[in-house]
Design a protein around this nucleic acid. Structure first.
Length: 507
RNA sequence: GACCCGGUAGCUCAGCUGGUAGAGCAACGGACUUUUAAUCCGUAGGUCGCGGGUUCGAGACCCGCCCGGGUCACCA
């Protein structure tokens, strides 16, 4: 293996050996730090020019400027970075000589008083220095300069594939990427807080399921050895959460991963994060208010901690910042908006006329699609893709919504809505079907499709029907794609940039 | 899946109509006690994605393949 090391790695191994030979342990157990770099900087007031408090800071060496008997460096931690100043007369010959064994990327701890350099930068005058972890592989740090107050980054880490594969290196080198993922966590925490405040209970339901359902998608399959049975990774949480409402947990939610064995592109990762929540005695109009409030709350949370990076050469996440949301969001009827866009009564068209209309607006392979699918495609092309600001689309045709209740007063429609923004679906919700007899019919229709070769169709979930037969309260349910919501709020076009470890082809 | 762009040093990239591999940063040696893309002098570092072909000669041209990015399609 050592023959594979490049010359940079070999040089670092040699330094490691030299340190060990001098009795320095290159991988420490702990370091007693008193301040983060940003806290240390704040400790030293702008008007203070004499030496200040003593601090102990720890982090990664990100820049190194040796000048013979004196050395400047920058140390970065999660909060930011601070300059270090080493002097031979301060540290002594032996300690100062050890600095030669340090490299950019090493994790070190430094103690000493704060002072302000000639150029005004708050700096730690190192009195003691300790190696905490030797970096044996060079991190692709770029160099930074400040031009007219704007940080400009030179020759950094640009290879998108390597940034995803080695997210640890991407994060180590790009503070703006750390900030983005912190904002994602902040958003999820805010969503949890909102639901908790409404009396929702956070629960965990099975990822491994004997029967999959709750959405239309091809599943991942696996096998349990002891039971000698096929299990599926869930494609949705829905049916288990609704079982819990049967059990008397009136308001439940779950934030977790769903798995869909389908294509990978800039808006699809096979494993993605879904928030689903169900509320007994609420219908879809109540849930619309809930979604609106949650999205506004998510936007506020993200906006409070995140803005597009102002570093030239930074990893890009679109522009414009977090959108300003002005609830209530517009609500448009599915049928009406399709008819308006088409200039005809889509639902009233005969099969051939409908297919011709679909072809004309550019729907591909119309002849292979079922009638509901054709309608859905037309709606996507004519309406969805043009919804830029958050908009609720309400009252979907019954053919498109196998788990929703029929609309009161119009059985051709269902009480369902989806929320769209920037042409992408952010949420999907309905007044949940709670009639077990109707549900069995719909399951059986799915099972027939499956028998006919439709891999996306699920089977009959007898246990779920049993739960429903005990009596399922009316309820509203919502699914929100967390990755998509965060992409929308940060204007990030690629889902891989909001997932820490996106799926890639194995190396 | 279709089309477009790309794969050259650890990183970011250049390499013209084919002539035998370049820069900056990082690394290594040296000088330097307030620098900040530090500076200066020197050194080393390459299976040019892989496999064929054309040619006296291929990083470059041709064919095939692999990998990545983008666009479109599919996957609500």
């Amino acid at each position: 293996m050592s023959e594979d090391l490049n010359f940079v790695q070999r040089a670092r191994r040699e330094k490691l050996d030299a340190l060990v030979a001098q009795g320095v342990s290159p991988f420490a157990y702990s370091f007693d730090r008193t301040h983060t770099t940003v806290d240390a900087l704040r400790l030293h007031p702008a008007d203070q020019h004499e030496e200040g408090d003593t601090v102990r800071v720890a982090g990664r060496i990100v820049a190194w400027r040796a000048h013979g008997k004196t050395t400047f460096a920058h140390l970065a931690d999660d909060s930011g970075r601070i300059q270090l100043y080493f002097r031979r007369d301060q540290l002594g010959d032996a300690t100062y000589a050890k600095l030669d064994m340090f490299d950019i990327g090493d994790v070190i701890g430094v103690g000493g008083p704060l002072f302000r350099t000639r150029t005004g930068e708050v700096t730690v005058r190192a009195v003691d220095v300790e190696l905490l972890a030797k970096s044996l592989r060079p991190l692709p740090f770029g160099k930074e300069e400040v031009v007219d107050g704007v940080t400009v980054r030179h020759s950094g880490f640009a290879d998108a594939e390597q940034r995803y594969r080695q997210r640890y290196a991407d994060l180590a080198v790009h503070p703006e990427v750390r900030l983005l993922f912190r904002a994602r966590s902040t958003m999820i925490r805010a969503l949890r807080g909102s639901l908790d405040e409404l009396g929702y209970l956070e629960v965990e339901t099975p990822v491994l399921q004997p029967v999959y359902g709750g959405a239309t998608a091809r599943p991942f399959m696996t096998h349990h050895n002891a039971l000698d049975t096929t299990l599926y990774l869930r494609i949705a949480d829905e049916l288990y959460l609704k079982r819990l409402v049967v059990g008397g947990l009136d308001r439940v939610y779950e934030i977790g991963h769903d798995f869909r064995n389908e294509g990978i592109d800039r808006t699809h990762n096979p494993e993605f994060t879904m928030l689903e929540f169900y509320e007994a005695y609420a219908d879809y109009s109540v849930m619309m208010t809930r979604v609106e409030n949650l999205v506004v709350c998510a936007a506020a949370a993200v906006g409070a901690v995140w803005a597009p990076p102002e570093i030239e050469g930074a990893v890009e996440h679109g522009s414009g910042g977090v959108p300003q949301l002005r609830p209530p969001f517009p609500r448009i009827q599915w049928v009406q908006s399709l008819n308006d866009a088409l200039g005809a009564d889509a639902m009233g068209l005969g099969d051939e006329a409908l297919r011709n209309a679909a072809r004309q607006i550019g729907v591909q392979k119309v002849e292979t699609l079922s009638r509901p699918k054709v309608l859905d495609e037309m709606f996507q092309a004519l309406v969805e893709s043009k919804l830029h600001d958050p908009t609720f689309v309400v009252d979907y045709p019954v053919e498109l919504s196998p788990l929703a209740k029929p609309k009161r007063g119009d059985p051709t429609l269902t009480e369902r809505f989806e929320l769209f923004a920037r042409g992408k679906e952010l949420a999907n919700a309905f007044s949940e079907l709670n009639d077990p007899i109707d549900q069995r019919r719909r399951f059986e229709a799915q099972a027939r499709l499956r028998a006919a070769g439709d891999e996306e169709a699920s089977g009959v979930d007898e246990d779920y029907l049993r739960a429903m037969e005990y009596g399922m309260p009316p309820m509203g349910g919502v699914g929100i794609g967390i990755d998509r919501l965060f992409m929308y709020l940060t204007n990030t076009p690629n889902i891989r940039d909001v997932i820490l470890f996106p799926i890639l082809r194995p190396e």
